[in-house]
Design a protein around this nucleic acid. Sequence first.
RNA 1: GCGCCGGUAGCUCAGCGGAUAGAGCGGCUGCCUUCUAAGCAGCGGGUCGCAGGUUCGAGUCCUGCCCGGCGCACCA
Length: 569
Amino acid sequence: MIQDTLVRLVADAVAAAAPDLGLDASDLPPPEISRPRQKEHGDWSTNVALVLASRAGKPPRAVAEAVAARLAGADVIRDVEVAGPGFINFFLDRSWLDDALREILSEGDRYGRVPPLGQRVQVEFVSANPTGPLHVGTARNAAIGDSLANLLEAAGFDVEREYYFNDAGRQFDLFGESVEARYLQRFGVPAEVPQDGYQGDYVADIATDIAAEVGDSLVQGDPAERRARMIREAVERTVAGIHRTLERFNVRIDTWFSEVTLHQTGAIDDAVRRLRDAGFAYDSEGAIFFASTRFGDDKDRVLIRSNGAPTYFAADCAYVLDKAGRGFDRLVYVWGADHHGSVKRLEAAAQALGVRATVEVVLYQLVSFLRAGQPAKMSRRAGDFISLDELLDEVGSDAARYTLLTRSSDSPLDFDIELVTRQSMDNPVYYVQYAHARVASLLRMALQEGIVPLSPDDVPIGRLVEDGELELVRKLTEFPEVVALAGEILAPHRLTRYAEEVAAAFHRFYSECRVITEDRALTEARLALATAAKTVVATALSMLGVSAPESMERVDGAQEGDRVGRDVV
RNA sequence: GCGCCGGUAGCUCAGCGGAUAGAGCGGCUGCCUUCUAAGCAGCGGGUCGCAGGUUCGAGUCCUGCCCGGCGCACCA
C-alpha cells in the first residue's frame, strides 16, 4: 500500500538528514503518515519534522526542509511541500489511485481484511441468564459483540465467540421453581409461583411444553428429582430459544458455556485453592475473601460465602482460568455499563491467577427503548417486557443492528422503535443499503446491454477524471485503515460511520456521472468503480451483520413528496 | 462520599495529539422526458461544560470544579 511506500521514503530521508540535524540515526521513531483533512495539504502528509524538531534543537520548518530535500524521487510523488508549522505534504500522481482501485477489484471481498496473525482471541458476549427469552436490553450487547468478533477476524485474529450462561444460583433456582409450579398447575396440583419468581407467560409455555413431552410422570415422583429435572428441561428450552433469536439477529455463537459445569467439575474450588496458594485468599467471618485490593480494587471480594456457597465472582475466577487454559491471547468481555464495578475485580483475579492473556472489557452504555418518544416499559420479572424477537418482528434485524452500532459504545443510545422503522435518513441503514442496491441494479442493466465486467488489469481506469469519481476511489482506499483502527480500539461504530461516508461518495458519483453510456470504455471504467464501491459497502455491512440487498423496491405507489419517511413527523 | 461514562451546531451524535472542528435530522433554495429522488447540489447555524496545566500544537492528554447517566452486596 501507498502508506508503506511513503513511510519507507520518509524514514530514509530522515536517516539521511540525521547527521546534519544532529540526530542519532539509530534511534528514530517510525514516521507517521496521515491523510490531511484539507485537500490543499496534499494527498498524504507527515509530521516527522514537528516531532523531531525539539530533539534536533532546530525550528520545525528547518527540519522539514532538510528532510524534504533528501526525499528520493519516486514516480508516484508529483510534488512535495513544506507547509504550516512544519508539515511535509505529498501530492501524488493519480496512478496511486489507479493502483488502489485495481487492488480493490482484484481482492474483491478480501479487500480490507488482513492475513491471519496466528493469534487467538475470544469474544464473550450476550451471556444473558437463560431464565427466559432474550429481551431487548441485550440487543446492543449482541450487536457489539458479534460485530467486534467480525472486525477482529478481519484484523487477522482467530476468533471464538462464546456465550456464558448462568444456570446456577438463586435467580436460576427461582426460575426452576416457577416452571415447576406452572407444570404442577397443569395437572391440577396446587402450587404457587414463588413471590419473587418469574411470572411471565413464557414460563407457563415452557411448563406446557415440558408437560407435553413427559406427561404427568413428574407430578408424583421425588420433589428434589423433579426440581432438578425441571431446571434441566427449562434451561434446554430457553437456551434453544435464545439460539434461535440470535440466529435471526445474524449473531453467531461458537461455544455455549454453562456456569454449572464450573461447579460440577470442581473448577471453582480449584480457582479458590489457587488464589489461596498464591496468598491472595484468606478466611474472615466464616467466608473466604479474595484480596483484590492488592490489585487496586476498592475492597476485598467474597469468594465463598459463610454459608459455604460460592459467589458469582468465584465462578468468574474459575471461568477466566478456564478461558486462559484454552490458549487465547486476548479475552474480550462485552458488558453493560451497569457492570463496570466488576471490571477491577475481574482484572485483579486474572492477574492473581497468573492469566497471561490480556483481559479487555468493552463497556457499553445502556439503551433506552422508546416508542414515538415515549419510554417503552420493560421489566422482565413482571413478564411485561419487549423481547428481542418482538423488536426483530417490528423493525427487522438489519435496521436494529445498524442502529445499535451507530454510536460509540460510551454513548447512551435512544432507540426509538417507531423511528427505526421509518425509511428515511433518521435511519441511515437504508441510505447505505441503497448504495449497494443501486450498483447491483447498474450491473444487471449493463449485463442486459451485453457489458460484462473486465478483469481488473483491463479496466480503462484512466477514463475516470471527474471529482466525484476520484473522491469515491479515495474514500474506498480508506477501508483497510478503518477496519484496522476499529478492530484495534474495539469500536464497531467506526465502521458504521465509514459505511455512510462511502455511500455518500457513491451517491454523489452516481448523480454526477452517468454510468451506462454510449462510450464503451467510459462505461467500463465507471462500472468497475461502482463495483468496487459495491464490494466495500457489502464487506462493511457484513462486518456489521447487516445484509447488502441486490435491490430495494421503491415504496409503493408513492408520488414525489409522499414517499415514506419524507413527510412523517 | 468513591468509581466508570458522557457534556461538541436548534436536536441526535462523529471526531487515531495536528493545519480552517464534521455528519445526519430540522429550516431555507434549487435538481427527476435519461442507469432506483430511500438520491444530489447549495445556504444558514459553534465561547467543543468551566478554570488551570502539559505540548511546537489540545475538542482530543493531566488536575480541579459544575451538570447528567450508571454503579458501589456474603445479588446475578
